[in-house]
Amino acid sequence: MAAPMTAIPAEARQGLKSSSMSNLTLILIKIAYLAVLWLFILTAIGVIRTDLFGSKKKPRRKPRPAPRPPSRQDAGPSYSSKPSRPPRPRRNEPTALVVTQGSLKGTSVDLGVQPILIGRAPDSTLVITDDYASGRHARVYSDNGRWFVEDLNSTNGTYLGQQKLNRPQPITVGQPIRIGKTVLELRK
């Protein structure tokens, strides 16, 4: 049935609307086109599914190293017990201050010569929305190539590791600075 229909275009006169191709073929093309439009949408919705259920492949989460024994009472870095990461040299130049926990997780501030003011006040360098943070909470600044964190008399205090700050302390890359629920650290 379809064979004589498709044979028509070969002998068709040109320039005349809809006489050159059979109506059936055009209707089929039309339906096919609409089907492709909807196929696009179905494919797109398939992509959205990953929002709801995650990707099919299990996210390859690298097994994290076991928590280190809490031998650290001082603020100095002691990386030697970490098996997966080579011990870092003590003096490496940090370039950014990164938020690793809290509502601003993922935010990073580039380190310059200017001190970084952390707090809820809108004119702070890093404005943190944390109920436990003060308006002007802490300051991160460099002095002779070393970086220091100083608590600005905040209500709930600033912690370096487990230790509450009562005077400016030198910090190195990777040391967690905790302000309320927010944890920051220096990055190379």
Partner: peptide
């Protein structure tokens, strides 16, 4: 959607000390 940087020190804000 950019994944947040992983903490270098795998240490929570509060930690159980054994």
């Amino acid at each position: 959607r950019r994944p947040a940087p992983q903490a270098i020190q795998d240490e929570g804000a509060t930690q159980v000390i054994r």
